[in-house]
């Protein structure tokens, strides 16, 4: 039994209106994060709780700084796109759109804050 019209099936955008692009982004970022996350847990876990000089020393090295940068960018972007799916399941219309806009603003703000702090520490 078909629940969608022929035209909607031909366009192929689905209920969320973005086709398979969103799903594919989540797969690609998940595959990347599978390597970034364990490395970041190790770097951050070692740095958390150590003294100020050690933290400055840690993030002035290229690999910890690069991994942290990747974590901030792709972790938060993966989160933001995942939050979209959450809202698409539970909200409709304006509530859906406004919640996605607000969370995107918040996520990118957090991302920029994290990258600024990292740049200041690393350089």
């Amino acid at each position: 039994m078909r629940y969608i019209t022929d035209r909607k099936r031909a366009v192929g955008k689905g209920a969320a209106g973005s086709g398979t692009g969103h799903h594919w982004y989540m797969q690609v970022s998940a595959a990347g994060l599978a390597f970034i996350v364990p490395t970041f847990i190790y770097i951050f876990g070692k740095a958390l709780g150590s003294d100020y000089a050690t933290v400055l020393e840690t993030f002035s090295h290229p690999i910890p700084a690069i991994v942290t940068g990747l974590m901030i960018i792709f972790g938060l972007h993966h989160f933001n796109r995942g939050f979209e799916t959450l809202m698409q399941d539970y909200a409709r219309g304006h509530t859906l759109k406004i919640s996605i806009i607000l969370m995107t603003v918040f996520t990118y703000g957090l991302m920029a804050t994290g990258l600024f702090s990292l740049a200041k520490l690393a350089l």
Binding site: F44, L48, G75, F79, G114
Partner: peptide, 20 residues
Amino acid sequence: TGNALIVTSVLVIWWLGAAA
């Protein structure tokens, strides 16, 4: 877990910002 991790993200970036 995926959506709750935003709390962790805020805490980690707060910590990074404090170090900076």
